[in-house]
Design a protein around this nucleic acid. Structure first.
Lengths: 223, 223
DNA sequence: TCCAAGCTGTCATCAAGCTGTCATCGCGCG
DNA sequence: CGCGCGATGACAGCTTGATGACAGCTTGGA
């Protein structure tokens, strides 16, 4: 799951990026509206965290632009203001959620999980699929009832595959979901590597990651 | 848009109901968990406003029940507590949003609009034709309900034919659609080859690729 | 601050199966 | 009946993916 953080205070942006990164999100940071537009044009995001106060304009303009262009990416707005009008305005302009600064990083994380999971058509973090039991919030994985340890990247990949279960995901899309711009030089072989590692851990779970040559991978029930 | 308000303080419930009513929502009020269960079982709601503090238990139990039962109705949680743990917990248990009491009625209204708004709109580029079911996004193909695997080229050809269904496509045009400039030296026989391969996979689908000698191919319903 | 453990990503090598060519056969049309 | 376009089976090359080993780096603990 790739997230765009539009925030000019680098302290806040860095902290959020680090915290979300640990939670399995891949983050890009845009300190200005111009940067945000560039990033959003280049790639798609699972969600956008948007500060309203930016050096080159208001985040609300950016939000309005995207919505007008038909972009429905979930947007969580950050605001330092206490005015109800402002929050309500942002929500009515198409924001999906907001947080008042200063905010707790765990809360940002939980809200982004709620937003992205809604996009995937899920109502809760926990997914049971065959003998597989995955909780995106707790980052925990069980196979046939037994706890299985998995690394951050492995869980991120699993999360992506589950969110798109039954669909073939190209390696490019998986790559975009797993890595932000700062890791753009990572070889695409990495995806194959993590698929292999995940498969090993999922063996016997009744869930399989199928290879579709030249197309990508698909997660679905075995058999 | 019908909304269920689960809240035992009748002042708050009435005020919310009146305000939301003016905004175009139809509201039912449930003062207890038992009432809430009864209402939710009888009819479906566009969203649920849920107080966590109720005379006969915690709203979180109710939330968990509904989610476990597969109910995805958007839930907005009302909480009097400031504990981050509690909010995060509710969100992770499947809540879509929360408000801290006391809250502004306009804000409740805006948030419910945001929650219900996103139920609409799920763009799918999926085509069903006779017994054939093709999803260009998921790159998946079904014939008579059964999943059929196809290679990249086969899917590309199918996509082209479906997009121009009922029209005769010359081999040249199909060729241009399947191969870029770098493959310009591929023999035109290849198209015939892939048509044959596709026909094999589509047999029994009710869809046929007709040959029009000297002109090209046409995909349409059988018979 | 240093160390150890484990996560990450690169590389090389091996396997799989997609791709396109060829040859041969069928079939429609003149 | 003959010509030419199209159909199809077989095959070899080559792209694409799988996987084991390894080095660098991060992270957590002492």
């Amino acid at each position: 799951m790739r997230i765009l953080i539009v925030e000019d205070t680098s302290d806040v942006a860095e902290a959020a990026s680090a915290s979300l990164g640990r939670a399995g999100f891949a983050c890009d940071i845009a300190p200005t509206l111009a940067d945000a537009r560039a990033c959003a044009d280049i790639t798609g995001y699972a969600a956008i965290v948007l500060d309203l106060n930016l050096p080159d304009g208001s985040g609300r303009d950016f939000l309005r632009e995207r919505r007008r262009a038909g972009d429905r990416t979930p947007v969580l707005v950050l605001t330092a203001q206490f005015s109800v009008e402002d929050r309500v305005g942002a929500l009515d302009e198409g924001a999906d959620d907001y947080l008042v600064k200063p905010f707790d990083l765990r809360e940002l994380e939980a809200r982004l999980r709620a937003l992205t999971r809604r996009e995937a058509g899920r109502a809760e973090n926990r997914v049971t699929l065959g003998g597989l039991d995955f909780d995106a919030g707790a980052q925990s994985l069980r196979v046939g009832g037994a706890a299985v340890t998995a690394t951050r990247r492995e869980l991120a990949l699993l999360n992506l595959l589950i969110a798109n279960r039954g669909r073939i995901m190209s390696k490019d899309r998986l790559f975009d979901g797993l890595f932000g711009f700062e890791n753009a030089d990572v070889g695409t072989n990495t995806i194959e590597l993590y698929v292999a590692r995940l498969r090993k851990k999922l063996s016997g779970s009744g869930v399989a990651i199928e290879t579709h040559r030249g197309l990508g991978y698909r997660l679905d029930l075995d058999g």
